[in-house]
Amino acid sequence: MSSFALMIQGAPYSSGAALSAFRFCEAALESGHQIQRLFFFQDGVHNASALCVPPQDEFHLPKAWQQLIQQHRIDAVVCVASALKRGITDNNEAVRHQLPASNLLEGFSIGGLGLWMESMAKADRVLNFAP
């Protein structure tokens, strides 16, 4: 069993990056490997929005990520700086910045780029899915 760290830099539905990362993640788990961490960076933070409503006949990528993350207990980190400037926030940050609401999907957590540095050192392989 090997471990993977995946960085996701693309928003859902904007480019193929996020879907490619999702499919890779699924295939790695199906092959018996471990996902050391998912790190959502730049526009990739939109994958963690609880407010996405794609048409019913389209793949719901944020929800699919959430199911995969919860089912396999994957550490899914959303970059705090990338998230806040794009309007993605958890409860703590919403209170800190006096925002009217929070919208981070359950299963994801907010964290800093230091966690990605740690992933690059710890995981067997690192892949970066960007637009």
Binding site: S2, F4, A17, R23, F24, E26, A27, A28, E30, S31, H33, D124, R125, V126, L127, N128, F129, A130, P131
Partner: peptide
């Protein structure tokens, strides 16, 4: 397939993503 892609990434020492 994606599974082959996963296996390829392990056969090689490192992965470089070009974008």
């Amino acid at each position: 397939s994606y599974r082959d892609f996963v296996a390829l990434s392990l056969v090689h020492e490192r992965v470089v993503n070009w974008h």
